[in-house]
Every structure is written in C-alpha cells, then in structure tokens.
Design a protein around this nucleic acid. Sequence first.
DNA 1: TATGAATGAGTATTCATTCAT
DNA 2: TATGAATGAATACTCATTCAT
Lengths: 189, 189, 189, 189
Amino acid sequence: MTADKPLRADARRNREALIARARELFDSGDFFDLRFDDFAALAGVGVGTLYRHFPTREALAEAVYHHEVATLCDRARHLRATLPADEALATFLRGMVDHIDAHEGLARTLATLMATGSGALAEGSRALEQAVTDLVAAAVAGGAVRDDVGAGAVMMALHGIGAAHDRPDWRAEADGVITLVLDGLRRPR
Amino acid sequence: MTADKPLRADARRNREALIARARELFDSGDFFDLRFDDFAALAGVGVGTLYRHFPTREALAEAVYHHEVATLCDRARHLRATLPADEALATFLRGMVDHIDAHEGLARTLATLMATGSGALAEGSRALEQAVTDLVAAAVAGGAVRDDVGAGAVMMALHGIGAAHDRPDWRAEADGVITLVLDGLRRPR
Amino acid sequence: MTADKPLRADARRNREALIARARELFDSGDFFDLRFDDFAALAGVGVGTLYRHFPTREALAEAVYHHEVATLCDRARHLRATLPADEALATFLRGMVDHIDAHEGLARTLATLMATGSGALAEGSRALEQAVTDLVAAAVAGGAVRDDVGAGAVMMALHGIGAAHDRPDWRAEADGVITLVLDGLRRPR
Amino acid sequence: MTADKPLRADARRNREALIARARELFDSGDFFDLRFDDFAALAGVGVGTLYRHFPTREALAEAVYHHEVATLCDRARHLRATLPADEALATFLRGMVDHIDAHEGLARTLATLMATGSGALAEGSRALEQAVTDLVAAAVAGGAVRDDVGAGAVMMALHGIGAAHDRPDWRAEADGVITLVLDGLRRPR
DNA sequence: TATGAATGAGTATTCATTCAT
DNA sequence: TATGAATGAATACTCATTCAT
C-alpha cells in the first residue's frame, strides 16, 4: 500500500537487522522484557537508529507481525484454492495451532499486545480475520458449515489458544478447541 | 488455607476498603494503569498500609479474584446439583458470558494478569477450572457429551472470550463460541 | 494566601535545605547549568524529594525569588514611610543597583528566567512592580516627578540593568541609568 | 574582515537560503526552540550543509545579526551627518524602538543570546555600541548633552527595552524609557 | 499500626554532531 | 559538495519500596 521508497544501503541493512532481531525476541518471548537501549545494542545499532526506524515498540512489533500475517494469509488463500471448502478451513485451523506452537513466544507476545489494546496491529489483525472469514464463508457456501455462527467466534477461539499458551497441556487442549470448533460448525441448526 | 487471625477493627476496615476499591478498578479496567501511591490514596489509606495488607499488586488482585471465583464455583456446584448434567454445563457457560459482560474490565484485567504469567492467581484459576472439569465430567458420565475433549479446551475457549473483550461485536461472538463449544461437545466421535 | 499547612519535621528540613542551596546557586549563577539530579545531590536529598517539593526548576526559582522580592518590597514600604517621596524613590533605585551588584548571579538568573517567559515568577514580578509604582505615584503626588511617564518605564530600565550584568563596566553604567531615569523624571513636560 | 572567497553557485544559494530562513525564525522568536535538523529541513538543505556553512547556532545568529547591525549603524551615520547632534541622537533612539517593535522576535532572541553570554555577537554589539557612542559624543560636543553619563548607560536602557519585549504595555513603556533617557541626558550637572 | 515523605535505581527519549553515501 | 542516516551521551522524570514520624 505505502509505496516503499528505496532506502539507503545502510538504512536498509539496519532496518532488516532490527526486524530480524525482533523476530527472534518475539519467538523467545523476551520482546517485552527488554529495555529499548539493550534491544538496539543487540541488533548492533544505536538507540537513535532504532527510534528512527521504529518510533515505538508497537511499530516494531507490527513490522514483525506483518511478515507473519502475510504468510498465514497466503496459506489461507492457497488452501482455499486447492481444497474443498470445509477441508480448507480445517487444515488452516490445525495449521494455525502448529504455527503458534512453533513460535512459542510470538503467541504470547501477540496476546500481550492485543490485551494492551495496541491499535498498531489493527491492519494485520484485520487481514488475518479476513482470511478466516473467507474460509468460513466458502465452507458455508458449500453447505458444509452452519451459517448462524460467524467467523468472529472462530477468531475468538484462536485468540484463546494463543493467549493461553503457557498452560502445561497446551497442545492437546488447543487441538481440542479446534475439534470443538470444527465439529460445532458442522452441526447446522 | 491460611487461618484468618482476627484483625484489629481499623485494620479490617482498611483491608476491606482496599479490596472494595480494587474491585471497582478491576471492573473499570484501570487497575494496572494506576500508581501504587494513587491506588492507596483512592482507597483512603497510606501506601504503607496498602503494603502491609498486600505486599504485591498480584496479592491484591488475588484477593479480588478470590471473591469472583468463589461465587462462580458456588454457582457451578448449585447448577450441578439442580439440573441435568448437560444443561448444567450449558447454563454455566452461558452464565460465564453474562458475568464477563457485566464486569467488563475484570475480564480484561484477568486476561492481562494471565498473560503476565502471574502465578499468584494459580489457586483461583485451579478452583475455577475444577468447577468446569466437574461439570464436563458429569455431562460425560451422563452420556450427553463426548469424552475425547477435556475441560481444558473449554477453559481455553473461555479464556479467548475474556481476552478478546474489546472486539466490537464481542457479545454475539462470545455467544457463538459457546454455541460451537456446546454443539461440538455434543457430537461424540 | 495559600495556608501553609505544617510540614513534617524532615520535610521542612529538606525543603529549607533545597531553598538555601538554590539561593547559593542563584548567586553564583550556576543555577541553570546544573542537572536536576546533581542539584538534589548537592542539597543532600534524593531527586524524588526535589521533585516532590519543586516539580519544576521554575517552581524552585520562584521560592527563592519570593524571599528576594519580599525583602525589596519591605524596603520600598519603609522608605516611603520615612523619607520624602522623591528621595524615597531615588534611594530605592540606587539600592536596587546595590542589591543586584551584591547578588551577581541572581540578576543574570532572573534575566534568563524572564527572557524564558516563565510565568512562574509573575506574582513576584507584580509585587515588585507594585512597589515601584507606589514609589513613583507618591513622588508624582508630591509634585517632584512628572506624571506622563509611568512606573513601567522605570521597571524596564531596571530590567536592562539586571539583564546586562555581564558588561565590563556594569556598575558605572547602572548608576548612569539610574541617574538618567531620576533626572528624566524630575524634568516635567 | 574575512575576505569573501567566491562560493560555488549552489553553495551561495544554500547559504543565502539559510540566512533568510534564520531571519524569519529570529523574527518569529522560534529560533531557539528549533532542532538543528528541523532548521536545516525548513531551509531546504541537509543538516550537513547547515553545519558546513554555520558550525554553531551562534555563527548563524551572527550572520543574521550582522545585517541588522549594519543597517542600524548606517542609519546612525546618516543621522549624524544630516541632523543637529541632539536631534540625531533622539531620532536614532526613537527609531530603535520602532525597529525592535517591527522585529518582535528579534529583540527577544538577541536578548536571550546576550543573556546566554554568547560571545559570538560581540563584534556586532561593539559596532552598534560604537554608533551610539558616536551619537552621544557628538551631542556632548555640541553642548546639548551632559558628559557625566556615558553611552553605556544608554545601551543598557536599550537592552532593557529589548529584553522586556513581552510586557503587555511594551510600546508605551519603551517610549517612556527613551523619554527619560533623553530628558535625563539634557539636564547637565 | 498507620502514615506519607524520602529515596534513587531504572528507563525512555532527544538532539548535537559525525560520517558513509 | 550535499545529503540525511547513524550515533550515543546526556538528562529528565517516574514510581516501587522503605522507613522515620
């Protein structure tokens, strides 16, 4: 959307180093425990540079989140194009659990960020939600899924999965949630 | 567990004022935005007194949470004693949505607290979870509900409902989640 | 005006230490070159205490200024009560030069503060101006001084004297300004 | 003094843009509130370029001040050549008030700069002071003005006029100061 | 036991200056 | 020579916690 004006070589280098480092910290869950100063140092740039590129913690979070969301949306599109609607939905949701599982801290971080109410992630959130909405809509159109429960409920369930990532039995429970959601959706009223 | 040794009259008064004030702030969602100083002032006591009664923010949170959870657990017990198992579960879950709806900030605050990983609420959490587990177990025993998805998944779904309280269409979506969970549970595999 | 509610013993001690130290720094002219942290340390209190008593540099400046101004106003009143009006005015103005001379840094500091436009000194400024106005008015009433040039002009001249305190030949020039002002006032038009 | 070695066309353009912009900011009084970065941007050049031309804020201030002072000195010379000595002095001082009035912020800025003690403006100050000294000396020589109060006092008074520019009744008071100074000078002792 | 003043480590943020492009 | 990205020292200010009253 925003025309990416070409950055100076060093500027691009720094920006990328910052995002890369941030992603690691997201994954390890240390993103919020870190002082801004130290984060800059870890990424090998001065604080000033960090501020120039990302004026707030959220701005940085968004840059990372953006990648994630884009990947997930692509996947949703792909599934929708290649599988029957209800299978596409199921596969996507199961995949989401895998994804969250693989990016332990990311889930926690995003949950925190959302609990904070940070509007910075709004765009990404909307994109992801749109993908889910499309998957559900296709399944509804195909007749495999009830139409009286919207995609919003599915998002909420996913939210719960992400937010509760520290539960000892997380993986099994997360799968359980998905099972309930999918089976619940299949029982039309 | 902890034997409540009798407090001096004024000590009790202060303690209660603190809890009452805290509950209000939980509900309004301002619990975390407040400086410790200011919180004490709002409750009409000095900071020192606040510290004497509740050495940490979480200790205070727990005192409030304790009431909430006790109430909810009682309700669960009551429902289990007076209704058929599956109806008891359904009624309880629908009631949870009402409860969260009525205590807007509380949900958000608890979500934050949980995202923070504060272990202080562990006891309360376990109690609540036990209540849900019992309800589910009863329904499973009654044959109305599948046995391959545990109560943990239900907790997770509830968690999502609480954590996503700022969604514009929250109420409808929360009802949707409960519908999916209940219908999902009813479809045994 | 503001009812001085009695301070706790240590609070009073700290407050007074801060003002005393500040006055020294005013006089030495270092008031503005000093970090807030260091100032607190010099006064032997923590930064927090400094902030509690004087939330801004200006608030502190005002506390010092207040003393000064009160002294000067008293002097003006005394002179007006004991000397013929024109002599009272002359004596006061000459005395102002002495005063500024004796408090080298103070003059510079006040000039800076005024150049900054800090409104914090407004009250003190007004009080001082009122004293000058009264002196001039009395002299006018006594017929010794013209009535077509107000006390504001005299204030401005004093301001110039204070603001230019770094001129090498300051004392002689300041006396010159006062001479011009007094002689100018005596020549009615 | 410094031989103006010919600048490259674009260098000259930049230099002039910087001075022009600086003069505006002087007049509007924002000269000191502005970050160096922003100033450069406003002038349409990079910071680096700003630094090349004016290594310090004061250097830039001086460049602007230089113009002002030159103009004023020319005027003083012209008046001295065309009017009787005492009239020349009076006209010059009244004109100074007009000038300061017309360049609102400039007065404040210069006052600040002087309060700061910046020596960078020394040369300009001396030039201006010389002009006043010459005017006074001529008037003294003509017998219209006393000889026991130097031009320094007049400078001080002017300083007060400039430094107090934010007084609500500035114009009237400034005129009053000039009146006192002129009448005071006319009464020889 | 209650109070609230004192404390000062902790952290975010700015902005003058340099230097790679 | 012009540019503006990078740098990081400098500093203000907050707020959890302690402790004198």
